[in-house]
Nucleic acid binder design. Structure first.
Length: 589
RNA sequence: GCGCUCGUAGCUCAGUUGGAUAGAGCAUCCGCCUUCUAAGCGGACGGUCGUGGGUUCGACUCCCGCCGAGCGCGCCA
């Protein structure tokens, strides 16, 4: 958009003044404070300093070499050497008209498409999906949508927890205390009950623990009965997952669970041993520190009583079983061989950060050449805390089930829709409530910075005012309402003879619209969907002000056409922006 | 104990290469529907950005100390 044109011209001007300057360091960004201008560059200050030049005169020189009269009304030099650009309404109008013709306005496809594997959601078999799963699922889905919108190749993979020691306990429970009727009615609840009962017994009684381990050993050895039961547990769990994902509108290209990699684990450990990456220790096989990092930042070391001692990444237990480290190594290996990605993104709880550090370092030692070609990226996120500020407890039962949360959201939304729009047919009200309720939940989860913990509250999760999905969806319905009432089609093909961006609220809206793509790029770069939330919230706010101050249908001629175009573009950016967050819009609310 | 993360308005949170007078929502108070949906808009109130130093043209942002909170430190995942 405009900032790119300005940036290119600024880079040219800088190079004209300082031929050996690095143009890549000269960036033009939207002004944080629009009172200073529309776009700004702070790069000249740093550059002048680097060259021991006086920044103000240097900025003057650059400005003199700058040819942006066609794009800008003014280029100001402020403070120590900020360059502030105020774009020309004509230039803005040209961009709007050109972009209106495109399917996704303001979002140029990347000229460097990358292949990105995104690993997210990853629920466990035999456990209900609870509110905690919304974080990985929502962030991961938003990321895959944003990357796709920008033109990257995305492979989404749901690495479900369908293998591991918990199946020993589950199998024991299945064989001894399974309630068939309960399994028929609520399979996940029954599986969860089995696990809890047996787990408690195992904690108290070593004999039970040993029994569970034996079931696990039989499963791992391929015992027919245990395999059949295990597959049945996966089947009923997958049915639950499919139902939740269907409701959330989340799709995966692949669902390759942990068990998929079982056949390769033995060979991988063998290879790690052969290459000297891993070694035996106390009957197990592990990867130890190679001493290349200072102890403080070496994940293979841990401090105990003032001493740094080995904290290896075990890839084979002394009983011969494998760990999730082994599975994760096999997974990277498989993904690289199968898809040749430039990057693998893991959307997983921050608490697993040490595991991923070990995993990535181990892989780099195992396959150094391959590791150089791929960026392994753990995208962590904080916990959801209860309203009392304490973390949700997974085991002790007081977690909110994801399905219940969604149902509650839709119920509350239905009440509001019915109150606001009683004349709509019930089916339509329910559909609106589904979209609004679901949107509210997803949006609320994506809004906080992903790194920080956030406090769950029904009130906040389902709020309809302020920085929420319903607010944005409402802005969209206002756009649609205008077109419904006018009977005119959204433009795009029908251009006004001349765009007249004159009113301050028209200009502010237009200037914000053209930054859509820039925001998406930042989201992709930092893997922070909340930047998009905030962009869209600002957009909706600017539209609301425009809506108050600039009547559309009462206007005439070019003014009317201009406003209709702004409405159309706003509606489309809201719709596509929300879609990138996995949120739908409606025609009416 | 060691490591990681975090301390921003009464509450919940934003704050995009370090940028200009730190922003929202909720709550409280005051205005605005004979006008395209008021799920809206405008305004008021509210801050020594935990604290003390440092780096520099400039620090909520980077570095160090201290205080406080959370998490991690299983042959679980």
């Amino acid at each position: 958009m405009l900032h790119l044109a300005l940036q290119a011209k600024l880079q040219a001007a800088v190079c004209a003044v300082l031929p050996d300057a690095d143009p890549a360091a000269i960036l033009v960004r939207p002004c944080l404070d629009t009172r200073h201008g529309d776009y700004q560059s702070n790069a000249l200050i740093a550059l002048a300093k680097q060259r021991k030049l006086n920044p103000r005169p240097f900025a003057e020189q650059v400005r003199a070499a700058l040819e942006v009269a066609d794009l800008c009304e003014a280029v100001d030099i402020a403070g120590p050497g900020f360059l502030n650009f105020r774009v020309h309404p004509m230039a803005l109008a040209e961009v709007l008209q050109a972009e209106a013709l495109k399917e996704v306005p303001f979002v140029p496809k990347t000229n460097q498409p990358r292949t990105v594997v995104i690993d997210f959601s990853s629920p466990n078999v035999a456990k209900p999906m609870h509110v905690g799963h919304i974080r990985s699922t929502g962030i991961g889905d938003a990321l895959q949508r944003v990357f796709r919108l920008l033109g990257h190749r995305v492979i989404s993979d749901n690495h479900i927890g369908d293998w591991g020691t918990q199946f020993g306990k589950l199998l024991l429970g299945w064989k001894q205390i399974l309630d068939r009727d309960a399994l028929g009615r609520e399979p996940i609840a029954e599986l969860e009950r089995l696990y809890k009962v047996i787990n408690t017994e195992c904690d108290a009684n070593p004999t039970r623990l040993e029994e569970a381990k034996q079931e696990l050993v039989k499963l791992q050895a391929g015992d027919a009965e245990n395999i059949a039961v295990w597959q049945e547990m996966i089947r009923v769990s997958q049915r639950q997952f499919d139902s939740v994902y269907g409701r959330l509108g989340v799709k995966f290209d692949h669902t390759l669970g942990e068990s998929f990699y079982n056949p390769q684990l033995g060979a991988i450990v063998g290879d790690l041993l052969a290459r000297g990456v891993a070694r035996e220790s106390e009957g197990a096989v592990g990867v130890f520190s190679d001493g290349s990092l200072p102890p403080k930042s070496d994940p293979f070391l841990v401090n105990r009583d003032g001493e740094w001692v080995a904290d290896p990444a075990l890839v084979r237990k002394s009983d011969g079983g494998f760990n999730y480290m082994t599975t994760d190594l096999a997974t990277i290996d498989y993904r690289l061989r199968t898809w040749s990605p430039d990057e693998i993104i893991y959307v997983v709880d921050d608490r697993q950060a040490p595991h991923f550090r070990k995993l990535f370092l181990t892989f780099a030692r195992w396959q150094p050449e391959a590791a150089q070609r791929v960026k392994l990226n753990h995208i962590g996120f904080g916990k959801i805390l209860g309203e009392d500020g304490r973390p949700f407890k997974t085991r002790s039962g007081d977690t909110v089930k994801l399905e219940d949360l969604l149902a509650e959201a839709e119920e509350r939304a239905l009440k509001v829709v019915t109150e606001k729009n009683p004349d709509l047919p019930e089916a339509q009200r329910k559909e609106i409530a589904r979209i609004v309720g679901l949107g509210a939940v997803k949006y609320a989860d994506l809004l906080p910075n992903r790194q920080s913990d956030y406090q769950f509250s029904w009130e906040k999760m389902l709020a309809l005012q302020g920085n929420t999905a319903p607010y944005l969806q409402y802005a969209h319905t206002r756009v649609r309402g205008i077109f419904r009432k006018s009977g005119e089609q959204a433009s795009g093909s029908r251009q006004p003879a001349e765009l007249v961006l004159a009113a301050p609220d028209e200009l502010a809206l237009a200037k914000h619209l053209i930054n859509f793509g820039l925001v998406l790029e930042t989201v992709a770069e930092e893997c922070r969907p909340n930047f998009l939330n905030n962009y869209l919230y600002e957009l909706a706010g600017l539209f609301a002000r425009f809506y108050e101050s600039c009547p559309v249908l009462k206007a005439e001629g070019n003014e009317r056409a201009t406003r209709l175009l702004l409405c159309d573009l706003t509606g489309r950016v809201l719709k596509q922006g929300l879609a990138a967050l996995g949120i739908e819009v409606t025609e009416q609310m």
